[in-house]
Structures are given as structure tokens and as C-alpha cells.
Design a protein around this nucleic acid. Sequence first.
DNA 1: GTCGGTGCAAATGCTTTGCATTGAT
DNA 2: ATCAATGCAAAGCATTTGCACCGAC
Lengths: 159, 159
Amino acid sequence: MDLPASQFEREGPAPSIIEPLCAVFRRKIRSDGLKYTPERARVLDAIIELDRLFEADELLDTLRRGDHRVSKATVYRTIRLLQDAGIVQRVLSDRDQAQYQLVYGTKPHDLLIRLDTREAIAIDVPELVELRQRICREHGLVAQGHSFQVYALKGAIAD
Amino acid sequence: MDLPASQFEREGPAPSIIEPLCAVFRRKIRSDGLKYTPERARVLDAIIELDRLFEADELLDTLRRGDHRVSKATVYRTIRLLQDAGIVQRVLSDRDQAQYQLVYGTKPHDLLIRLDTREAIAIDVPELVELRQRICREHGLVAQGHSFQVYALKGAIAD
DNA sequence: GTCGGTGCAAATGCTTTGCATTGAT
DNA sequence: ATCAATGCAAAGCATTTGCACCGAC
């Protein structure tokens, strides 16, 4: 597991436990007058298979292991399409490579991250919704989502 | 400087309202057997003058407006030094250019980020400290820091 | 006088783009 | 048959690095 991410609440179509993601993607692609190609399907498959934060690079590696190769250019182009479709989101990061995650149909995660093991534990902090509303109101804005990570250690001194 | 995916409380020397930041920087630089040059001083000045999240680019622009120019290479090299000194920290971001902020002697900043303009506003949310303590206690851990960002829009529908 | 620092330009490394060919519809 | 998609290689950017000269100590 790697560094966290911003999670946004989704708007738009329902989470859809029934409809597979690839179908959602295909529908969106076609409704834009574009074509649903095997390469695009494979990129999405690789993302689903990875099932965690990913970088374009890792996707490329995963895809290379398959029978059919997908070019770097297509991987980047597909990531962009998936972002436009609301299926993938670029996450906040302090690394040099962009990081993405699958977000379609997920709730926002708040994370508790162990600095020693880098383990990330999903936590539920309902009061943050109210908190962020209050903050936004004070600035004349409307909250769309949030990201909260707590960093911790086992048996440390501070705090 | 790898860990901080976010905002941590500083350890080490006191926040120092008396001692100017440049003096802190100079002391650190010299204690490492390095040299405190006018260029390095000017970069730190520019950061202090900007007084907000910044990108290397903006720093360069600010510096160009002055009489003495500082090269791009030196700006990047100095940012790295300032990170090592714990004066500047790279922040989580989903942009293409890295973003940094002054952190020396400051409390962790929580951020309010406008999704439309990408503007990041530092906010103070003191209750998060207590919140994170509670969360950590429930997991038998000790909090070391946290990261909180709220994403918002002007006059949007949701929330 | 010594090293380390600076500016410049070249090199990197991630990401995007132009173009000729291929393929989904 | 059409028009978008693909793969490749080249181009674009942000950032880093090599090197000759410069300056803090």
C-alpha cells in the first residue's frame, strides 16, 4: 500500500454492483462517439486487477505480462479517458510520478497510516462531513469532498 | 526527506518567533559545512514574501523581478536544502508541478482547495488534533501528524 | 587559497503529441 | 468505407546534473 489519496464522493450514476465497470466505461465511450477497443478494455482490466493506487508505469508492467501488449501512449490516453468518465481519479501525492486510483462507486476513505509499516487502515470519521461543511460555509464555498489521513506509530513518545 | 506525505508537527528546535528564519537556515547550512550564499538567502526571502503554497516556477518569477537573478538550477537546489532543513515541505498535490510550503515553526496546515481554480487556502482546524488522538488511541497507536484537505466549489449544488 | 556554489546547457524521466497505419463500427 | 485508435518516435515540461568559472570562508 502506498500513500493515501483524496477521495471524492461520486455524483452521477449509481454505484452499480450489478453493472460491471467495463460496461460503464463502454457506454460512456460510445456515448461520446468514441470506440471501445480491446486496448482500452485491457487497461481498465489491469487497473481492476491491481486493486490499489497505481502509476502509469505499473499499469504498463502489468499489461506487458499479458499476451497482447498495449503501448505507453495508449495507457496514458486511456487513463485520461477513465478520468473523464469518473472511473479513475488522480490522487494527491508528493511523488514524481502521477498516482491514480479507481473511484467509481466508492465512498470516501479516511485513512490511518502507520509510519513504521506503511500499512493503511481505513477508518470512518463521520464528523468530518459536518466539519468540512462548516469550513466551506465560512469561505462561501460548497464542499465536494475531502481527504483525511492520520499518521501514527506504535508506542511512540509524542502526542 | 521521503516520508512526509503531509503535514507533521516539527520536532527539533523551538518555533522561534525571535530568531528569523534566515538565521535558522544559515545555521543549518553552516553546520553541514555548506555555504550561506546570497542566492540561497534570496530564495528563502522569496518564499517568505510569497507567503503561500508555491511552485518552483513562481519562485523563479518572483526572483526575476528583483535586481539580482537566481538561476533555475539554484532555485531547485535551494528548495531541496530547505526541505532537508525542515523549513519547507513538499505538499500533496495532483498537479504536474510540485508544490511546496513553508512549515518551519508552523502548525500543520490543513487546506481548503477550490476544484475550479485549484487555489489552495490554508485553514486552521484545531479540533483535528483531538480527533486524531482519539482515533489512534482506539487502534493502540500514537498520532504523529495528519493531513486534511477539503475540496470545494463556488456555488455548486451538492453537500 | 580552498572547496563548495553558481549559471548555463545538456541530460533525465514522465507525459503528450504527430503521423502513418490499423481496426471498430 | 469511414473515422477514430494504435504504436512508434519525437516533442514537451519539470527537474536534475555536468562542468567551467566564481566567490564565501
